[in-house]
Design a protein around this nucleic acid. Structure first.
Lengths: 220, 220
DNA sequence: AATATAAATGAACGTTCATTCATTTTAAAA
DNA sequence: TTTTAAAATGAATGAACGTTCATTTATATT
């Protein structure tokens, strides 16, 4: 698969073919769902023989895992550009928000694929192949912000959910062109800025809002 | 299909069969993904003949649409219990949060299915069959809260994303048993209460946080 | 017990699926 | 120009797919 040994007398790989396979596979999953991705349809769409796909990928599962890894790598690289975990919290969060928003707005299919993939049984296998450096940086950023009292003490998962889940939800509506009730919806920069403002307000240190007891887990 | 005409000399329907079909279909989608749901495997799992499924459902797509509608109806009914759109904002939001959290924690597969379905091409067809009363109540609740100055002016979609997307993200981690980095994760009541507290803080009227300009949409 | 009707079925349909394989094509080194 | 080894292929594989159909089963009424 990923072997890069080069012998004499080798015919050169046509990288355009690999790109086409990746591109059309992603398109197909987004347009027709995971059950709509077939190797023969994919081969036709990418303009190659079905057998060619098996030169580059062990099987269909391998293709999906490689595609997911590739998309995550591209996404993470984009997010990290201009970001430094040593930034102060508000600036760092704003930079990340902007980069994430820009990417998924400009590349809605890529965003859709990554989110959809997170509900697949393949997710766990994908996580195992993941480069840990990205999440280490994110973790460091949050730990440091808590130490510096720029952020209330909270588990990383709570932070991430409050900080970014609203953004991804808005982008999902935007891509579908409608909200959950079926009403037309188009995301605007004003909405994005307002949402970021609300998120910053939520995460800013200070008295939390009092909350009624909601024991959903203990009393099962 | 949904016909309820009853003639004399009719053999009675075995409702257990329909229940089993629904139950196993949901299980199969959650465990193996949408591409893992086959009518023959489903028939075997539900203990019926493949042909029996086609007595109750026009085809596979119809089965998925009916299943989704059924799950949404159950979920919405649960959420609305104890909720009244005329409640004051903080109480109403807390009630909804508690009900939503309880349901998806107690019924993780059902929650997973509904969220996963939202990325399917079938979503648009499902939205068209949807009972509008639920979203009308939610809409009324928010409009009224804005009028009463209990909530900053914002589009409904922004409200929903800030209010509930963090909850669903946490529950997703909880069901997977890990966060996006692959670290073990278990949701606690404390995390839920903290997240609700942050959400209430975000939505509470008052000065928003200043935010840098993030124009992701205009400059494309 | 006989009857009428829909429920329920197992086997079969043609199609599409993922994958393989014998063969041809390609391109750089010799 | 010849040589070489991987790239690339079209056709074929058996398995699994969604769906149908001729037939049998079950049951509330007569």
């Amino acid at each position: 698969m990923g072997s890069t040994l080069i012998f004499a007398f080798m015919r050169t790989r046509d990288e355009n073919k690999i790109e086409a396979i990746y591109r059309e596979a992603l398109q197909m999953v987004v347009n027709e769902g995971f059950e709509g991705l077939s190797m023969q349809k994919l081969a036709k769409a990418a303009g190659v023989s079905p057998a060619t796909i098996y030169i580059y990928f062990k099987d269909k599962e391998d293709l999906l895992l490689q595609l997911h890894k590739r998309e995550l790598d591209k996404y993470f690289a984009y997010i990290l550009d201009g970001f430094d975990p040593e930034m102060d919290f508000a600036s760092g969060l704003a930079v990340q928000w902007k980069r994430r928003a820009e990417y998924v707005i400009k590349h809605p299919n890529e965003g859709h694929f990554m989110e959809n993939f997170a509900f697949t049984p393949l997710l766990q296998k994908s996580i195992r192949m993941r480069d840990k450096r990205f999440s280490e940086m994110m973790s460091r950023f949050v730990t440091k912000a808590i130490q510096n009292k720029e952020l209330v003490v909270m588990p990383f998962e709570v932070y991430w959910s409050v900080a970014f889940a609203p953004l991804y939800n808005l982008v999902r509506y935007h891509k579908a062109g409608m909200n959950l009730s079926g009403e037309k919806f188009q995301l605007t920069d004003e909405m994005l800025m307002q949402t970021l403002s609300l998120v910053l307000k939520a995460l800013k240190p200070g008295a939390g809002e009092p909350v009624p007891d909601i024991s959903c887990i203990k009393h099962q």
